[in-house]
Design a protein around this nucleic acid. Sequence first.
DNA 1: GATTGAAGTATTGTTCAACAATCCAACGAG
DNA 2: CTCGTTGGATTGTTGAACAATACTTCAATC
Lengths: 243, 243
Amino acid sequence: MTATDDRTGRPTGRTRLLPPLPSQAERVAELLREAVIDGDHPPGRRLSEERLCEELGVSRNTLREAFRLLVRERLVVHQMHRGVFVSLPDSEDVRDLFNARRSLELPAVQRAVDPTAESVAVVGRAVDEGEAARDAGDWWGVGTANMHFHQALAGLAGSARIDEFMSRVLAETRLVFHVMDAPREFHAPYLDWNRRIHTLLAAGDNEGAAAELTTYLDTSEEQLVTAFVARETGGDRPAGTTP
Amino acid sequence: MTATDDRTGRPTGRTRLLPPLPSQAERVAELLREAVIDGDHPPGRRLSEERLCEELGVSRNTLREAFRLLVRERLVVHQMHRGVFVSLPDSEDVRDLFNARRSLELPAVQRAVDPTAESVAVVGRAVDEGEAARDAGDWWGVGTANMHFHQALAGLAGSARIDEFMSRVLAETRLVFHVMDAPREFHAPYLDWNRRIHTLLAAGDNEGAAAELTTYLDTSEEQLVTAFVARETGGDRPAGTTP
DNA sequence: GATTGAAGTATTGTTCAACAATCCAACGAG
DNA sequence: CTCGTTGGATTGTTGAACAATACTTCAATC
Protein backbone atom coordinates (compact mmCIF):
# COMPACT_ATOMS: atom_id res chain seq x y z
CA MET A 1 0.00 0.00 0.00
CA THR A 2 1.19 3.45 -0.76
CA ALA A 3 1.46 6.48 1.48
CA THR A 4 -2.06 7.58 0.68
CA ASP A 5 -5.32 5.81 0.40
CA ASP A 6 -5.78 5.66 -3.34
CA ARG A 7 -9.51 5.16 -3.15
CA THR A 8 -10.16 8.49 -1.52
CA GLY A 9 -6.79 9.79 -2.59
CA ARG A 10 -6.58 11.76 0.60
CA PRO A 11 -3.43 12.25 2.57
CA THR A 12 -3.79 9.98 5.53
CA GLY A 13 -5.20 11.73 8.60
CA ARG A 14 -3.22 14.05 10.81
CA THR A 15 -3.11 17.72 9.99
CA ARG A 16 0.30 19.12 9.26
CA LEU A 17 1.31 21.73 11.78
CA LEU A 18 4.97 22.31 11.11
CA PRO A 19 5.41 24.17 7.86
CA PRO A 20 7.30 21.99 5.42
CA LEU A 21 10.92 22.82 4.76
CA PRO A 22 11.39 25.02 1.72
CA SER A 23 12.61 23.18 -1.29
CA GLN A 24 15.81 24.10 -3.02
CA ALA A 25 13.88 25.72 -5.82
CA GLU A 26 11.99 27.92 -3.40
CA ARG A 27 15.16 29.01 -1.70
CA VAL A 28 16.69 29.88 -5.04
CA ALA A 29 13.54 31.77 -5.97
CA GLU A 30 13.72 33.69 -2.71
CA LEU A 31 17.32 34.65 -3.39
CA LEU A 32 16.56 35.80 -6.90
CA ARG A 33 13.44 37.62 -5.76
CA GLU A 34 15.38 39.70 -3.28
CA ALA A 35 18.15 40.31 -5.77
CA VAL A 36 15.68 41.56 -8.34
CA ILE A 37 13.75 43.71 -5.89
CA ASP A 38 16.96 45.17 -4.50
CA GLY A 39 18.06 46.01 -8.00
CA ASP A 40 21.07 43.74 -8.14
CA HIS A 41 19.81 42.63 -11.51
CA PRO A 42 18.52 45.70 -13.35
CA PRO A 43 15.19 45.49 -15.18
CA GLY A 44 15.59 44.11 -18.67
CA ARG A 45 18.68 42.09 -17.85
CA ARG A 46 18.74 38.55 -19.07
CA LEU A 47 19.32 35.92 -16.39
CA SER A 48 21.51 33.28 -17.96
CA GLU A 49 20.71 29.74 -16.86
CA GLU A 50 24.25 28.61 -17.32
CA ARG A 51 25.80 31.41 -15.34
CA LEU A 52 23.25 31.43 -12.53
CA CYS A 53 23.17 27.72 -11.87
CA GLU A 54 26.94 27.92 -11.71
CA GLU A 55 26.79 30.91 -9.38
CA LEU A 56 24.15 29.46 -7.07
CA GLY A 57 25.47 25.94 -7.14
CA VAL A 58 22.24 24.30 -8.24
CA SER A 59 21.32 22.31 -11.28
CA ARG A 60 19.67 23.83 -14.31
CA ASN A 61 16.44 22.00 -13.60
CA THR A 62 16.19 23.39 -10.10
CA LEU A 63 16.99 26.87 -11.35
CA ARG A 64 14.30 26.55 -13.97
CA GLU A 65 11.79 25.56 -11.31
CA ALA A 66 12.71 28.72 -9.42
CA PHE A 67 12.29 30.75 -12.60
CA ARG A 68 8.74 29.48 -13.01
CA LEU A 69 7.88 30.79 -9.59
CA LEU A 70 9.24 34.25 -10.36
CA VAL A 71 7.50 34.32 -13.72
CA ARG A 72 4.21 33.80 -11.93
CA GLU A 73 5.02 36.83 -9.78
CA ARG A 74 5.79 38.84 -12.90
CA LEU A 75 9.19 39.75 -11.55
CA VAL A 76 10.77 38.13 -14.58
CA VAL A 77 9.43 37.35 -18.00
CA HIS A 78 10.11 34.19 -19.88
CA GLN A 79 10.52 34.13 -23.63
CA MET A 80 10.63 30.81 -25.38
CA HIS A 81 14.13 29.80 -26.39
CA ARG A 82 15.42 33.20 -25.38
CA GLY A 83 15.54 32.92 -21.64
CA VAL A 84 14.21 34.84 -18.68
CA PHE A 85 14.63 38.57 -18.27
CA VAL A 86 14.09 40.82 -15.32
CA SER A 87 10.77 42.51 -15.99
CA LEU A 88 11.00 45.92 -17.57
CA PRO A 89 7.65 47.57 -16.82
CA ASP A 90 6.37 50.24 -19.15
CA SER A 91 3.91 53.08 -18.61
CA GLU A 92 1.02 50.74 -19.31
CA ASP A 93 2.19 48.44 -16.55
CA VAL A 94 2.40 51.41 -14.20
CA ARG A 95 -1.19 52.33 -14.96
CA ASP A 96 -2.33 48.77 -14.46
CA LEU A 97 -0.45 48.45 -11.19
CA PHE A 98 -2.07 51.60 -9.86
CA ASN A 99 -5.48 50.46 -11.01
CA ALA A 100 -4.92 47.25 -9.13
CA ARG A 101 -3.80 49.17 -6.06
CA ARG A 102 -6.87 51.37 -6.22
CA SER A 103 -9.03 48.28 -6.32
CA LEU A 104 -7.23 46.73 -3.40
CA GLU A 105 -6.46 49.62 -1.10
CA LEU A 106 -9.45 51.93 -1.41
CA PRO A 107 -12.20 49.46 -0.58
CA ALA A 108 -10.08 48.03 2.22
CA VAL A 109 -9.80 51.49 3.75
CA GLN A 110 -13.45 52.30 3.19
CA ARG A 111 -14.74 49.08 4.65
CA ALA A 112 -12.44 48.94 7.67
CA VAL A 113 -14.77 48.57 10.61
CA ASP A 114 -12.84 48.84 13.85
CA PRO A 115 -10.42 51.80 14.20
CA THR A 116 -8.83 50.16 17.23
CA ALA A 117 -8.21 46.86 15.48
CA GLU A 118 -4.73 45.39 15.31
CA SER A 119 -4.78 45.73 11.53
CA VAL A 120 -5.00 49.50 11.91
CA ALA A 121 -2.14 49.49 14.37
CA VAL A 122 -0.03 47.72 11.77
CA VAL A 123 -0.65 50.65 9.46
CA GLY A 124 0.53 53.03 12.16
CA ARG A 125 3.70 51.05 12.73
CA ALA A 126 4.53 51.22 9.05
CA VAL A 127 4.22 54.99 9.23
CA ASP A 128 6.57 55.08 12.18
CA GLU A 129 9.00 52.85 10.33
CA GLY A 130 9.05 55.25 7.39
CA GLU A 131 9.69 58.31 9.53
CA ALA A 132 12.46 56.54 11.40
CA ALA A 133 14.11 55.56 8.13
CA ARG A 134 13.86 59.13 6.88
CA ASP A 135 15.44 60.48 10.05
CA ALA A 136 18.23 57.96 9.61
CA GLY A 137 18.76 59.07 6.03
CA ASP A 138 17.95 55.58 4.81
CA TRP A 139 16.04 56.36 1.65
CA TRP A 140 15.76 52.79 0.52
CA GLY A 141 14.32 52.04 3.93
CA VAL A 142 11.79 54.80 3.40
CA GLY A 143 10.68 53.06 0.25
CA THR A 144 10.45 49.75 2.05
CA ALA A 145 8.38 51.29 4.82
CA ASN A 146 6.11 52.83 2.23
CA MET A 147 5.52 49.39 0.76
CA HIS A 148 4.73 48.08 4.23
CA PHE A 149 2.28 50.92 4.69
CA HIS A 150 0.32 50.10 1.59
CA GLN A 151 0.54 46.39 2.30
CA ALA A 152 -1.03 47.15 5.66
CA LEU A 153 -3.79 49.14 4.00
CA ALA A 154 -4.67 46.22 1.77
CA GLY A 155 -4.47 44.02 4.84
CA LEU A 156 -7.51 45.80 6.23
CA ALA A 157 -9.57 43.69 3.84
CA GLY A 158 -8.71 40.68 5.95
CA SER A 159 -8.02 38.23 3.15
CA ALA A 160 -4.85 36.19 2.99
CA ARG A 161 -5.19 35.92 -0.76
CA ILE A 162 -5.54 39.65 -1.12
CA ASP A 163 -2.46 40.09 1.03
CA GLU A 164 -0.46 37.80 -1.18
CA PHE A 165 -1.63 39.46 -4.35
CA MET A 166 -0.88 42.88 -2.91
CA SER A 167 2.65 41.89 -2.00
CA ARG A 168 3.26 40.86 -5.59
CA VAL A 169 1.84 44.11 -6.89
CA LEU A 170 4.11 46.03 -4.56
CA ALA A 171 7.13 43.99 -5.56
CA GLU A 172 6.41 44.90 -9.15
CA THR A 173 6.00 48.51 -8.16
CA ARG A 174 9.42 48.29 -6.65
CA LEU A 175 10.73 47.30 -10.06
CA VAL A 176 9.13 50.41 -11.48
CA PHE A 177 11.24 52.54 -9.19
CA HIS A 178 14.32 50.76 -10.43
CA VAL A 179 13.47 51.56 -14.02
CA MET A 180 13.37 55.25 -13.27
CA ASP A 181 16.48 55.27 -11.16
CA ALA A 182 15.40 57.98 -8.74
CA PRO A 183 14.91 56.03 -5.51
CA ARG A 184 16.53 58.72 -3.44
CA GLU A 185 14.09 61.22 -1.98
CA PHE A 186 11.20 60.15 -4.13
CA HIS A 187 9.17 58.78 -1.27
CA ALA A 188 9.87 61.61 1.15
CA PRO A 189 6.86 63.83 0.40
CA TYR A 190 4.55 60.86 0.83
CA LEU A 191 5.51 60.25 4.43
CA ASP A 192 3.32 63.05 5.74
CA TRP A 193 0.53 61.75 3.56
CA ASN A 194 0.84 58.33 5.13
CA ARG A 195 0.71 59.85 8.60
CA ARG A 196 -2.43 61.76 7.72
CA ILE A 197 -4.16 58.71 6.29
CA HIS A 198 -3.42 56.68 9.37
CA THR A 199 -4.64 59.44 11.68
CA LEU A 200 -7.94 59.62 9.84
CA LEU A 201 -8.23 55.84 9.92
CA ALA A 202 -7.55 55.64 13.62
CA ALA A 203 -10.20 58.32 14.15
CA GLY A 204 -12.74 56.18 12.32
CA ASP A 205 -13.00 58.58 9.39
CA ASN A 206 -12.80 55.96 6.67
CA GLU A 207 -14.13 58.18 3.91
CA GLY A 208 -11.64 60.89 4.73
CA ALA A 209 -8.81 58.39 4.66
CA ALA A 210 -10.05 56.99 1.37
CA ALA A 211 -10.21 60.47 -0.11
CA GLU A 212 -6.64 61.20 0.91
CA LEU A 213 -5.53 57.86 -0.43
CA THR A 214 -7.25 58.53 -3.73
CA THR A 215 -5.39 61.74 -4.36
CA TYR A 216 -2.23 60.07 -3.12
CA LEU A 217 -2.52 57.31 -5.68
CA ASP A 218 -3.54 59.67 -8.44
CA THR A 219 -0.61 62.01 -7.98
CA SER A 220 1.86 59.20 -7.52
CA GLU A 221 0.67 57.46 -10.67
CA GLU A 222 0.72 60.69 -12.64
CA GLN A 223 4.25 61.41 -11.53
CA LEU A 224 5.49 57.97 -12.48
CA VAL A 225 3.66 57.78 -15.78
CA THR A 226 4.95 61.13 -16.97
CA ALA A 227 8.45 60.03 -16.08
CA PHE A 228 7.90 56.83 -18.01
CA VAL A 229 6.48 58.26 -21.18
CA ALA A 230 9.40 60.67 -21.26
CA ARG A 231 11.70 57.68 -20.98
CA GLU A 232 9.84 55.72 -23.61
CA THR A 233 9.57 58.40 -26.25
CA GLY A 234 13.14 59.43 -25.59
CA GLY A 235 15.15 56.21 -25.56
CA ASP A 236 14.69 53.17 -27.73
CA ARG A 237 11.91 50.86 -26.67
CA PRO A 238 13.13 47.41 -25.62
CA ALA A 239 10.91 44.39 -25.28
CA GLY A 240 8.24 45.05 -22.70
CA THR A 241 6.97 42.87 -19.93
CA THR A 242 3.73 41.97 -21.64
CA PRO A 243 4.85 39.95 -24.64
CA MET B 1 28.77 38.17 -29.07
CA THR B 2 25.71 36.76 -27.48
CA ALA B 3 22.09 37.36 -28.30
CA THR B 4 21.85 40.23 -25.86
CA ASP B 5 24.01 43.16 -25.08
CA ASP B 6 25.51 42.09 -21.79
CA ARG B 7 26.38 45.60 -20.71
CA THR B 8 22.79 46.77 -20.67
CA GLY B 9 21.57 43.20 -20.57
CA ARG B 10 18.52 44.20 -22.53
CA PRO B 11 16.98 42.09 -25.22
CA THR B 12 18.06 43.70 -28.43
CA GLY B 13 15.48 46.10 -29.84
CA ARG B 14 12.31 45.02 -31.59
CA THR B 15 9.17 44.48 -29.62
CA ARG B 16 7.79 40.95 -29.66
CA LEU B 17 4.33 40.91 -31.18
CA LEU B 18 3.61 37.25 -31.72
CA PRO B 19 2.90 35.56 -28.42
CA PRO B 20 5.58 32.95 -27.76
CA LEU B 21 4.61 29.34 -28.21
CA PRO B 22 3.54 27.72 -24.99
CA SER B 23 6.16 25.51 -23.50
CA GLN B 24 5.54 21.87 -22.80
CA ALA B 25 5.26 22.59 -19.09
CA GLU B 26 2.61 25.22 -19.71
CA ARG B 27 0.61 22.88 -21.89
CA VAL B 28 0.78 20.20 -19.23
CA ALA B 29 -0.26 22.75 -16.63
CA GLU B 30 -3.21 23.76 -18.77
CA LEU B 31 -4.28 20.14 -19.10
CA LEU B 32 -4.03 19.52 -15.39
CA ARG B 33 -5.74 22.80 -14.60
CA GLU B 34 -8.78 21.87 -16.64
CA ALA B 35 -8.77 18.36 -15.24
CA VAL B 36 -8.74 19.70 -11.71
CA ILE B 37 -11.38 22.33 -12.35
CA ASP B 38 -13.59 19.82 -14.13
CA GLY B 39 -13.28 17.52 -11.17
CA ASP B 40 -11.47 14.70 -12.96
CA HIS B 41 -9.10 14.68 -10.02
CA PRO B 42 -11.15 15.14 -6.85
CA PRO B 43 -9.91 17.57 -4.18
CA GLY B 44 -7.46 15.95 -1.83
CA ARG B 45 -6.24 13.40 -4.36
CA ARG B 46 -2.54 12.96 -4.68
CA LEU B 47 -1.12 13.47 -8.16
CA SER B 48 1.58 10.89 -8.59
CA GLU B 49 4.55 12.08 -10.57
CA GLU B 50 5.33 8.66 -11.86
CA ARG B 51 1.84 7.90 -13.05
CA LEU B 52 1.16 11.34 -14.53
CA CYS B 53 4.37 11.71 -16.47
CA GLU B 54 3.65 8.29 -17.88
CA GLU B 55 0.07 9.23 -18.70
CA LEU B 56 0.93 12.57 -20.27
CA GLY B 57 4.05 11.39 -22.00
CA VAL B 58 6.38 13.97 -20.54
CA SER B 59 9.42 13.69 -18.37
CA ARG B 60 9.30 14.09 -14.64
CA ASN B 61 11.18 17.36 -14.79
CA THR B 62 8.67 18.87 -17.17
CA LEU B 63 5.78 17.64 -15.07
CA ARG B 64 7.33 19.17 -11.99
CA GLU B 65 7.63 22.50 -13.78
CA ALA B 66 3.93 22.30 -14.52
CA PHE B 67 3.24 21.49 -10.88
CA ARG B 68 4.99 24.67 -9.79
CA LEU B 69 2.63 26.69 -11.92
CA LEU B 70 -0.45 25.08 -10.43
CA VAL B 71 0.89 25.44 -6.92
CA ARG B 72 1.14 29.16 -7.49
CA GLU B 73 -2.51 29.16 -8.50
CA ARG B 74 -3.40 27.27 -5.34
CA LEU B 75 -5.13 24.57 -7.34
CA VAL B 76 -2.75 22.03 -5.90
CA VAL B 77 -0.64 22.01 -2.78
CA HIS B 78 2.88 20.72 -2.56
CA GLN B 79 4.21 18.96 0.49
CA MET B 80 7.87 18.22 0.75
CA HIS B 81 8.70 14.62 -0.01
CA ARG B 82 5.02 13.77 -0.05
CA GLY B 83 3.98 15.05 -3.42
CA VAL B 84 1.32 17.37 -4.79
CA PHE B 85 -2.33 17.06 -3.90
CA VAL B 86 -5.39 18.63 -5.42
CA SER B 87 -6.33 21.44 -3.06
CA LEU B 88 -8.96 20.58 -0.52
CA PRO B 89 -10.37 23.95 0.60
CA ASP B 90 -11.90 24.21 4.05
CA SER B 91 -14.42 26.64 5.46
CA GLU B 92 -11.69 29.14 6.20
CA ASP B 93 -10.65 29.08 2.58
CA VAL B 94 -14.23 29.69 1.58
CA ARG B 95 -14.42 32.75 3.81
CA ASP B 96 -11.15 34.07 2.45
CA LEU B 97 -12.22 33.50 -1.12
CA PHE B 98 -15.41 35.42 -0.57
CA ASN B 99 -13.58 38.22 1.19
CA ALA B 100 -11.31 38.44 -1.82
CA ARG B 101 -14.28 38.48 -4.14
CA ARG B 102 -15.93 41.23 -2.14
CA SER B 103 -12.77 43.28 -2.45
CA LEU B 104 -12.55 42.69 -6.17
CA GLU B 105 -16.12 42.76 -7.36
CA LEU B 106 -17.82 45.37 -5.21
CA PRO B 107 -15.51 48.31 -5.89
CA ALA B 108 -15.40 47.37 -9.56
CA VAL B 109 -19.17 47.58 -9.72
CA GLN B 110 -19.34 50.75 -7.67
CA ARG B 111 -16.70 52.56 -9.67
CA ALA B 112 -17.88 51.52 -13.13
CA VAL B 113 -18.31 54.76 -15.01
CA ASP B 114 -19.92 54.13 -18.38
CA PRO B 115 -23.06 51.94 -18.40
CA THR B 116 -22.78 51.58 -22.17
CA ALA B 117 -19.17 50.43 -22.10
CA GLU B 118 -18.13 47.17 -23.68
CA SER B 119 -17.12 45.86 -20.28
CA VAL B 120 -20.73 46.12 -19.14
CA ALA B 121 -21.90 44.35 -22.27
CA VAL B 122 -19.59 41.48 -21.41
CA VAL B 123 -21.45 41.15 -18.12
CA GLY B 124 -24.73 40.97 -19.97
CA ARG B 125 -23.46 38.28 -22.29
CA ALA B 126 -22.42 36.16 -19.34
CA VAL B 127 -25.96 36.44 -17.99
CA ASP B 128 -27.33 35.31 -21.34
CA GLU B 129 -24.90 32.43 -21.37
CA GLY B 130 -26.11 31.28 -18.00
CA GLU B 131 -29.79 31.38 -18.93
CA ALA B 132 -29.10 29.54 -22.16
CA ALA B 133 -27.26 26.83 -20.26
CA ARG B 134 -30.11 26.53 -17.78
CA ASP B 135 -32.64 26.18 -20.58
CA ALA B 136 -30.48 23.48 -22.08
CA GLY B 137 -30.30 21.67 -18.76
CA ASP B 138 -26.54 22.06 -18.71
CA TRP B 139 -25.94 22.67 -15.02
CA TRP B 140 -22.21 22.59 -15.27
CA GLY B 141 -22.54 25.19 -18.01
CA VAL B 142 -24.61 27.29 -15.64
CA GLY B 143 -21.75 27.22 -13.17
CA THR B 144 -19.28 28.15 -15.88
CA ALA B 145 -21.45 31.05 -16.98
CA ASN B 146 -21.71 32.20 -13.39
CA MET B 147 -17.94 32.29 -13.17
CA HIS B 148 -17.84 34.29 -16.37
CA PHE B 149 -20.36 36.67 -14.89
CA HIS B 150 -18.29 37.40 -11.84
CA GLN B 151 -15.12 37.53 -13.89
CA ALA B 152 -16.82 40.19 -15.98
CA LEU B 153 -17.77 42.12 -12.86
CA ALA B 154 -14.17 42.21 -11.70
CA GLY B 155 -13.22 43.17 -15.23
CA LEU B 156 -15.02 46.48 -14.73
CA ALA B 157 -12.00 47.58 -12.74
CA GLY B 158 -10.00 47.60 -15.95
CA SER B 159 -6.84 46.01 -14.65
CA ALA B 160 -5.24 43.04 -16.36
CA ARG B 161 -3.65 41.99 -13.08
CA ILE B 162 -6.96 42.12 -11.29
CA ASP B 163 -8.47 40.02 -14.06
CA GLU B 164 -5.80 37.40 -13.69
CA PHE B 165 -6.12 37.30 -9.92
CA MET B 166 -9.87 37.06 -10.18
CA SER B 167 -9.68 34.13 -12.55
CA ARG B 168 -7.55 32.27 -10.04
CA VAL B 169 -9.95 33.06 -7.24
CA LEU B 170 -12.81 31.74 -9.31
CA ALA B 171 -10.91 28.61 -10.27
CA GLU B 172 -10.41 27.94 -6.59
CA THR B 173 -14.06 28.62 -5.96
CA ARG B 174 -14.79 25.98 -8.52
CA LEU B 175 -12.85 23.54 -6.40
CA VAL B 176 -15.05 24.44 -3.47
CA PHE B 177 -18.08 23.29 -5.40
CA HIS B 178 -16.37 19.99 -6.04
CA VAL B 179 -15.73 19.46 -2.35
CA MET B 180 -19.44 19.73 -1.60
CA ASP B 181 -20.53 17.63 -4.53
CA ALA B 182 -23.74 19.47 -5.25
CA PRO B 183 -22.97 21.09 -8.58
CA ARG B 184 -26.38 20.27 -9.93
CA GLU B 185 -28.94 22.99 -9.46
CA PHE B 186 -26.89 24.96 -6.99
CA HIS B 187 -26.38 27.93 -9.26
CA ALA B 188 -29.92 28.09 -10.55
CA PRO B 189 -31.39 30.58 -8.05
CA TYR B 190 -28.53 32.95 -8.72
CA LEU B 191 -29.32 33.38 -12.37
CA ASP B 192 -32.12 35.83 -11.72
CA TRP B 193 -29.86 37.67 -9.34
CA ASN B 194 -27.25 38.03 -12.06
CA ARG B 195 -29.85 39.37 -14.45
CA ARG B 196 -30.97 41.93 -11.92
CA ILE B 197 -27.44 43.09 -11.21
CA HIS B 198 -26.71 43.58 -14.87
CA THR B 199 -29.95 45.47 -15.43
CA LEU B 200 -29.11 47.88 -12.63
CA LEU B 201 -25.60 48.22 -13.94
CA ALA B 202 -26.74 48.96 -17.47
CA ALA B 203 -29.11 51.58 -16.05
CA GLY B 204 -26.22 53.32 -14.36
CA ASP B 205 -27.39 52.45 -10.87
CA ASN B 206 -24.03 51.35 -9.55
CA GLU B 207 -24.99 51.54 -5.92
CA GLY B 208 -28.07 49.45 -6.49
CA ALA B 209 -26.05 46.84 -8.31
CA ALA B 210 -23.45 46.84 -5.56
CA ALA B 211 -26.16 46.36 -2.94
CA GLU B 212 -27.59 43.39 -4.79
CA LEU B 213 -24.13 41.94 -5.24
CA THR B 214 -23.41 42.34 -1.55
CA THR B 215 -26.40 40.30 -0.47
CA TYR B 216 -25.64 37.84 -3.23
CA LEU B 217 -22.13 37.23 -1.93
CA ASP B 218 -23.26 37.12 1.68
CA THR B 219 -25.92 34.51 1.11
CA SER B 220 -23.74 32.44 -1.17
CA GLU B 221 -20.91 32.46 1.33
CA GLU B 222 -23.23 31.61 4.19
CA GLN B 223 -24.68 28.73 2.26
CA LEU B 224 -21.30 27.29 1.41
CA VAL B 225 -19.76 27.79 4.82
CA THR B 226 -22.61 26.08 6.62
CA ALA B 227 -22.30 23.17 4.24
CA PHE B 228 -18.58 23.05 4.95
CA VAL B 229 -18.64 23.17 8.71
CA ALA B 230 -21.20 20.38 8.60
CA ARG B 231 -18.77 18.40 6.48
CA GLU B 232 -15.79 19.23 8.65
CA THR B 233 -17.33 18.43 12.01
CA GLY B 234 -18.83 15.29 10.55
CA GLY B 235 -16.08 13.49 8.65
CA ASP B 236 -12.41 13.27 9.54
CA ARG B 237 -10.36 16.29 8.68
CA PRO B 238 -7.56 15.61 6.17
CA ALA B 239 -4.64 17.90 5.54
CA GLY B 240 -5.91 21.28 4.47
CA THR B 241 -4.82 23.52 1.66
CA THR B 242 -3.00 25.97 3.84
CA PRO B 243 -0.18 23.93 5.36
C1' DG C 1 -3.96 -4.99 23.61
C1' DA C 2 -1.50 -0.77 23.04
C1' DT C 3 2.70 1.58 22.44
C1' DT C 4 7.34 2.01 21.05
C1' DG C 5 11.12 1.31 17.99
C1' DA C 6 13.59 -0.44 14.09
C1' DA C 7 14.01 -2.01 9.28
C1' DG C 8 12.17 -1.89 4.51
C1' DT C 9 9.81 0.10 0.69
C1' DA C 10 7.93 3.53 -2.16
C1' DT C 11 8.04 8.20 -3.54
C1' DT C 12 9.87 12.48 -4.15
C1' DG C 13 14.24 15.83 -4.40
C1' DT C 14 18.15 16.90 -7.01
C1' DT C 15 21.69 16.39 -10.14
C1' DC C 16 23.89 15.25 -14.42
C1' DA C 17 24.59 14.52 -19.27
C1' DA C 18 22.88 14.27 -23.70
C1' DC C 19 20.33 15.75 -27.70
C1' DA C 20 16.75 18.55 -30.15
C1' DA C 21 14.82 23.00 -31.17
C1' DT C 22 15.30 27.62 -31.74
C1' DC C 23 17.13 32.21 -31.84
C1' DC C 24 20.65 35.41 -33.12
C1' DA C 25 24.56 37.31 -35.35
C1' DA C 26 27.50 37.26 -39.14
C1' DC C 27 28.42 36.46 -43.74
C1' DG C 28 27.78 36.44 -48.68
C1' DA C 29 25.06 36.70 -53.15
C1' DG C 30 22.27 39.29 -55.86
C1' DC D 1 21.02 47.62 -49.42
C1' DT D 2 18.11 43.44 -49.02
C1' DC D 3 17.59 38.80 -48.68
C1' DG D 4 18.69 34.02 -47.67
C1' DT D 5 22.11 30.95 -45.62
C1' DT D 6 25.09 29.29 -42.29
C1' DG D 7 27.06 28.51 -37.92
C1' DG D 8 27.39 29.12 -32.95
C1' DA D 9 25.22 29.78 -28.60
C1' DT D 10 21.36 29.14 -25.54
C1' DT D 11 17.39 27.17 -24.09
C1' DG D 12 13.83 22.98 -24.17
C1' DT D 13 13.21 18.36 -22.96
C1' DT D 14 14.38 13.93 -21.84
C1' DG D 15 16.08 9.89 -19.22
C1' DA D 16 18.57 7.89 -15.72
C1' DA D 17 20.89 7.85 -11.50
C1' DC D 18 21.40 8.58 -6.62
C1' DA D 19 20.09 10.90 -2.14
C1' DA D 20 16.64 12.17 1.14
C1' DT D 21 12.44 11.53 3.21
C1' DA D 22 7.80 9.68 4.56
C1' DC D 23 4.95 5.80 5.15
C1' DT D 24 4.20 1.09 6.18
C1' DT D 25 5.25 -3.09 8.30
C1' DC D 26 6.51 -5.88 11.84
C1' DA D 27 8.54 -7.21 15.99
C1' DA D 28 9.59 -6.25 20.82
C1' DT D 29 8.19 -4.45 25.10
C1' DC D 30 5.22 -2.82 28.76
